[in-house]
């Protein structure tokens, strides 16, 4: 038994590392194939050829591809992700700086998405094929179908420009910038530590709109999965038995059916959380949110390869990790796969 497990584990590890190596090759190819010229971004429009060649040599752009790859992998194994052209800082520092902004955004989004999505999914399952089910499906699918950058713009026009209900672009109003010490990078946490609730409120004010739009876009998936898990449960015998035994409908739903799908829901929400990275790329552009998505796209436009490759690699690793996590959770908690 334990041998078998060990074998399964080794196999799993082999699979993951093969995927990671592939990931490396892929990101490298993407990075080096970029038609954008990073040297030109550094030296500018007016520079002459001598300056250009000097800079090309300095950043290693003159080496043949395979040598660049060896250099890249070698640096990676030493934990060196290179220096960003845009910021002049080690890419890893940059990412540590931009990640909290994105995590803050995505966390609020998932709270919103799951907070509405799960109850709606349960309601849809209970009301299966009745009007409520159709309405919920339609409403959540709208969130999934809207071009998120567009919704962001419309949201800004209505809630910021016209109504002034929420803050505009960025994480904070300028007035509040730098008022609380930057301890964690998460403005909400920093403000709470400092006890500055005015800054906290301002940050929430800026976070609300992009996070709820992002959350809305993830709601369809969460609702749909909740509905289908729930239906699974509701069709099972024990539910019928419980009902026959005289348990109230809401009690059966919440105490029995819902209790049984909690683990599945956790994995679904984890996967949805990863999926938010995608929406973040677009929504951050619209809301000038200084997060991971904006960092990645703006560096892509100037051909900042070290930064782009690290971002792509990071997204790949996050996704692999989330998939492994959800697999593991399934294996541990789902009796059928045990």
């Amino acid at each position: 038994m334990s041998n078998e497990r060990l074998f399964a584990f080794a196999r799993q590890a082999g699979t993951v590392s093969a995927t990671l190596i592939g990931l490396l090759v892929l990101t490298f190819c993407i990075g080096r194939l970029m038609p954008v010229d990073p040297v030109r971004a550094i030296v500018g429009e007016e520079a002459d050829q001598a300056t250009y060649e000097m800079v090309a040599e300095r950043i290693g752009a003159h080496l043949p591809l395979y040598q660049q790859f060896i250099r890249y992998v070698n640096d990676l194994t030493h934990g060196d992700f290179g220096v960003s052209i845009r910021t002049g800082q080690p890419v890893i520092n940059d990412i540590l700086h931009v990640m909290p902004a994105t995590i803050e955004l995505a966390t609020f989004a998932i709270i919103f998405g799951a907070g509405f999505g799960i109850p709606l999914g349960i309601l849809a399952a209970v009301q299966r094929n009745k009007p409520a089910d159709h309405v919920i499906r339609f409403a959540t699918l709208i969130g999934h179908s809207m071009p998120i950058f567009w919704t962001g713009m419309i949201g800004l026009i209505i809630f910021y420009a016209a109504l002034d209900l929420v803050g505009g672009g960025g994480r904070l109003s300028d007035y509040y910038v730098g008022l609380v010490p930057d301890r964690t990078g998460f403005i909400l946490i920093d403000a709470a530590i400092a006890g500055d609730w005015e800054v906290f409120a301002d940050a929430v004010n800026h976070l609300m709109l992009p996070a709820s739009i992002l959350g809305y876009s993830s709601m369809a998936y969460i609702t749909r999965m909740t509905r289908s898990f729930m239906l699974d449960q509701l069709n099972q015998e024990y539910i019928t038995t419980a009902r026959v035994k005289g348990l109230s409908k809401s009690r059966t739903i919440w105490h029995h059916a819902f209790a049984n799908i909690r683990v599945q829901l956790v994995t679904i929400v984890a996967l949805a959380y990863g999926g938010l990275l995608e929406g973040a790329v677009l929504i951050e552009t619209v809301f000038s949110w200084p997060g991971f998505g904006q960092y990645m796209t703006s560096n892509m436009l100037i051909g900042d390869m070290n930064a782009v490759m690290t971002c792509v690699l990071l997204v790949g690793v996050i996704f692999i990790a989330l998939n492994l996590l959800s697999d593991a959770l399934y294996k541990i908690f789902d009796p059928r796969t045990r």
Partner: peptide, 18 residues
Amino acid sequence: DIFLSFPSLILSLAFVAA
């Protein structure tokens, strides 16, 4: 698997960049 380990927009973004 490698291709599936990216959200589609990010991967196509990377490809278009390339």
